[in-house]
């Protein structure tokens, strides 16, 4: 066998006590690359960020548009920003299930035994997921524009809203990452994720004005982090304003 199957004497190795920041970043990027290759090999993973925004935007606009805002076009500024937040949530939810499935496979044992930063196997896929949020946000906005949505915030506002959506999705994904590491089965993560996702999305001004809800519910809507994201996105995209709620939303996420 080749000379590669040989080992160095123990004394030759400088042992480091901790991975450095640079190593942590490079290991995270390596893990992101792994996640990216896997994503490309399993195109089904893109269903939730491609078909779902297309379907939901069209569906919600035509179903609720007349009832809530009088006509579809007037409802678009509301529904597009609402769907953006919803998609960010669903897309980030997948993080938890995928992580759980991944951790149940043998390869995670090797990651655990390697001298790498403990965060890298978790942070890597989260970085690769930025691509998913990007696709979801782009498609939602594109469908909106095709349906006649004319954002008042202009190109800059839309871009800022787009970036905020991705950032929000990424931040929220850490909740699901945590669920993925502590729960026993992927199905469990999925189920619990749904329980978190639905109230957060619908108990917010995503699809209906907050004022139409009973007061006790409005109290919850007020503290819901998704409300912040939606309000901020609306301010950016529809008015082009960098309002307090935008700053608030960004800082909350951090």
């Amino acid at each position: 066998m080749a000379a590669l199957i040989s080992t160095y004497a123990v004394a030759d190795r400088p042992l480091r006590a901790h991975p450095s920041i640079g190593e942590t970043i490079s290991q995270t990027l390596t893990m992101a690359r792994r996640a990216y290759i896997k994503m490309m090999r399993n195109p089904e993973q893109f269903f939730d960020v491609t078909l779902q925004p297309l379907l939901f935007t069209a569906m919600f606009a035509f179903i609720f548009g007349g009832a809530i805002s009088g006509d579809v076009k007037a409802y678009l500024p509301t529904v597009i920003t609402g769907i953006l937040a919803q998609t960010a949530l669903t897309a980030s939810m997948a993080r938890g299930t995928q992580l759980r499935e991944d951790m149940d496979k043998g390869v995670f044992d090797r990651f655990k035994a390697l001298p790498i930063a403990r965060i890298a196997p978790l942070a890597g896929p989260a970085v690769a997921d930025l691509l998913r949020y990007g696709i979801a946000a782009t498609l939602t906005i594109a469908v909106g524009l095709a349906m006649g949505y004319r954002p008042g915030g202009g190109v800059g506002g839309v871009l800022a809203g787009w970036a905020l959506t991705i950032f929000a999705g990424w931040s929220l994904s850490w909740i699901f990452t945590w669920l993925g590491t502590v729960m026993k089965s992927a199905g469990g993560v999925q189920g619990l994720g749904m329980m978190i996702m639905f109230p957060l999305t619908f108990l917010s001004p995503a699809f209906v004005p907050k004022e139409t809800m009973p007061e006790w519910l409005q109290a919850f809507v007020g503290v819901n982090p998704v409300t912040l994201v939606i309000n901020a996105t609306r301010d950016l995209m529809n008015a082009g304003d960098l309002t307090l709620s935008v700053v608030w939303a960004y800082s909350k996420k951090l």
């Binding site: 123990v10 190795r13 042992l15 480091r16 006590a17 901790h18 991975p19 043998g106 044992d109 090797r110 035994a113 390697l114 001298p115 790498i116």
Partner: peptide
Amino acid sequence: HQVRQLVGVTG
């Protein structure tokens, strides 16, 4: 972390 630099594991 140092031990991980010294061992190889095949499960």
